[in-house]
Simulated scan of single mutants.
Amino acid sequence: MDFARIIEFSGNHPILILAFVGTLGLLVASELSRRLSGMKSVGPVEAIQLSNREDAVFLDIRDEGEYHAGHIPDAIHIPLKQLAERTEELKKHKERPVIAYCRSGSRSTQVGRILKKQGVENVYNLGGGIMAWQNANLPVSKK
């Protein structure tokens, strides 16, 4: 495909080109955010392995309503809006891996920077969030 045909296609299909550029931009922004957070992403199976092998702590950063609708059993609940003020609650777990999660895994990418400033180094993001956890048929508590 030569350059002239690409220009012609772009002129004939501006909405497709805008959708492509927008999608590409969102992917790049998401990847940059993940890399800047300093967090590794783990799936549900890896999260369970971390929990079993290294006694990882699950950190639910969703709001109250989301948390009460269903959360990972024994997860610590600190809404993202309150995390900077409540990091002291996690200090006793700073030697253990912390696996942060939200609904889909996007909000929880912000947790790495906040916790690393407080000396919590071993922070992971549950990729896909609670939705991935539930899709893997893993237990959810409503207590």
Rank of each mutant, 00 (worst) to 15 (best):
residue 1 M to E: 12
residue 1 M to H: 10
residue 2 D to V: 00
residue 2 D to E: 15
residue 4 A to Q: 15
residue 4 A to G: 13
residue 5 R to H: 07
residue 6 I to V: 13
residue 8 E to L: 08
residue 9 F to L: 04
residue 11 G to V: 01
residue 12 N to E: 15
residue 12 N to H: 11
residue 13 H to E: 05
residue 15 I to K: 10
residue 15 I to Y: 09
residue 18 L to Y: 04
residue 20 F to G: 12
residue 22 G to T: 02
residue 22 G to N: 04
residue 22 G to H: 06
residue 25 G to N: 12
residue 26 L to D: 08
residue 26 L to G: 05
residue 26 L to Q: 13
residue 26 L to Y: 14
residue 27 L to A: 14
residue 27 L to Y: 15
residue 27 L to H: 11
residue 29 A to L: 06
residue 30 S to I: 02
residue 31 E to D: 02
residue 32 L to A: 05
residue 32 L to K: 10
residue 32 L to C: 07
residue 34 R to A: 12
residue 34 R to D: 11
residue 34 R to W: 13
residue 36 L to N: 07
residue 37 S to Y: 01
residue 38 G to R: 04
residue 41 S to K: 12
residue 42 V to S: 04
residue 42 V to T: 00
residue 43 G to P: 08
residue 44 P to H: 00
residue 45 V to F: 15
residue 46 E to S: 12
residue 47 A to H: 02
residue 47 A to T: 02
residue 47 A to K: 02
residue 48 I to T: 11
residue 48 I to S: 12
residue 48 I to W: 10
residue 49 Q to D: 13
residue 51 S to T: 15
residue 52 N to E: 15
residue 52 N to I: 05
residue 53 R to A: 15
residue 54 E to G: 05
residue 54 E to L: 10
residue 55 D to F: 14
residue 58 F to S: 01
residue 59 L to M: 05
residue 61 I to T: 11
residue 61 I to H: 07
residue 61 I to K: 07
residue 61 I to W: 11
residue 64 E to S: 11
residue 64 E to W: 14
residue 66 E to C: 11
residue 67 Y to W: 09
residue 67 Y to P: 07
residue 68 H to P: 08
residue 69 A to F: 11
residue 69 A to C: 08
residue 70 G to W: 03
residue 74 D to L: 15
residue 74 D to Y: 14
residue 74 D to V: 14
residue 75 A to T: 03
residue 75 A to R: 12
residue 76 I to R: 08
residue 77 H to T: 00
residue 79 P to L: 04
residue 82 Q to D: 12
residue 84 A to C: 06
residue 84 A to K: 14
residue 86 R to A: 08
residue 86 R to K: 10
residue 87 T to H: 09
residue 91 K to E: 10
residue 92 K to Q: 06
residue 92 K to E: 12
residue 92 K to R: 08
residue 93 H to A: 04
residue 95 E to N: 06
residue 97 P to D: 05
residue 98 V to G: 09
residue 101 Y to V: 00
residue 102 C to H: 08
residue 102 C to D: 11
residue 105 G to W: 04
residue 106 S to Q: 14
residue 106 S to H: 09
residue 107 R to I: 00
residue 108 S to D: 02
residue 108 S to A: 00
residue 109 T to C: 09
residue 109 T to I: 13
residue 110 Q to A: 15
residue 111 V to K: 06
residue 111 V to D: 02
residue 111 V to L: 05
residue 112 G to F: 02
residue 115 L to C: 01
residue 116 K to H: 08
residue 117 K to R: 09
residue 117 K to G: 08
residue 118 Q to E: 15
residue 118 Q to W: 13
residue 118 Q to G: 13
residue 118 Q to I: 07
residue 120 V to C: 07
residue 121 E to F: 10
residue 122 N to H: 11
residue 123 V to L: 03
residue 123 V to M: 03
residue 124 Y to Q: 07
residue 125 N to V: 00
residue 125 N to Y: 01
residue 126 L to T: 00
residue 126 L to H: 09
residue 126 L to G: 08
residue 127 G to C: 11
residue 127 G to K: 13
residue 128 G to L: 01
residue 129 G to H: 03
residue 130 I to D: 07
residue 131 M to Y: 08
residue 131 M to T: 14
residue 132 A to I: 00
residue 134 Q to A: 15
residue 135 N to G: 13
residue 135 N to Y: 10
residue 136 A to D: 14
residue 136 A to V: 02
residue 137 N to F: 10
residue 138 L to A: 03
residue 138 L to R: 06
residue 140 V to W: 10
residue 141 S to I: 09
residue 141 S to Q: 06
residue 141 S to F: 05
